[in-house]
Amino acid sequence: MAFAPQDPRIPDPDDPVLQDDRVDYAPFPRSVTSARRYTARLVAHWGHPALAQDAELIVSELAANAVLHGSVPGRHFRVRLTLTKNHLRIAVSDAKGERVPRPRRPTPDDKFGRGLLIVRALAARWGVRERIVGKEVWVELDIARPLAGP
Rank of each mutant, 00 (worst) to 15 (best):
P8D: 02
E136N: 05
W138L: 12
L141M: 04
G97Q: 04
A35R: 01
I118V: 06
F112Y: 11
T107S: 12
E130N: 07
V100G: 01
T107L: 14
R129D: 02
R99L: 11
W46M: 04
R75Y: 11
P29V: 09
P108W: 00
A124K: 02
D142E: 12
D142I: 11
L18I: 13
G113K: 07
D15G: 08
G97P: 04
A123G: 01
F28P: 02
A26W: 13
A121N: 08
D110Q: 15
K111H: 13
K96Y: 11
H45G: 12
P11D: 10
L68S: 11
P16R: 08
A44N: 07
E136V: 13
P106Q: 14
D24M: 09
V100P: 00
A124Y: 01
L18C: 14
Q19M: 14
R22D: 12
S71H: 03
A4Y: 15
R80T: 11
D12P: 01
P103D: 03
T107C: 05
R22H: 09
P73T: 05
F77V: 10
T84P: 01
K96T: 15
P101R: 08
A40M: 14
R36C: 06
W126D: 09
V23E: 06
S34E: 14
R114I: 08
P49V: 12
D15C: 09
T39D: 05
D24S: 14
G74W: 04
P101H: 05
A55H: 00
A44G: 03
D21N: 07
D110V: 07
R99K: 14
A52I: 01
G97F: 02
R75M: 11
K111S: 13
P5K: 06
F28C: 05
D142L: 12
E140R: 05
K111D: 15
R104C: 01
D24I: 06
V32G: 03
I90F: 03
P106N: 12
V43T: 08
V119S: 02
D110W: 09
E98D: 09
S93Q: 09
V59A: 02
A91K: 06
I10Y: 02
P8R: 03
D142A: 12
R129G: 00
S60E: 06
A40W: 00
D24W: 15
R89Q: 15
A66M: 07
T33V: 13
G113Y: 00
A66L: 05
G134L: 13
T39E: 10
D109F: 08
T33G: 14
F28A: 10
V72M: 08
G134T: 12
T39L: 10
V79C: 11
S93E: 06
V17M: 07
V43D: 06
L88N: 01
K85R: 13
V119I: 12
P5M: 08
Q19Y: 14
S60F: 15
R120K: 08
P101C: 07
E130C: 03
R22Q: 12
S34K: 00
G134Q: 09
Q6Y: 04
V67F: 00
D7E: 11
R99F: 00
L122S: 01
G127R: 01
K96D: 15
H76R: 14
L68N: 07
R104T: 10
G47K: 10
K135A: 11
V67W: 00
L122D: 03
I132W: 06
E140V: 02
L68Y: 01
I58R: 02
A95R: 03
W126E: 14
R105W: 07
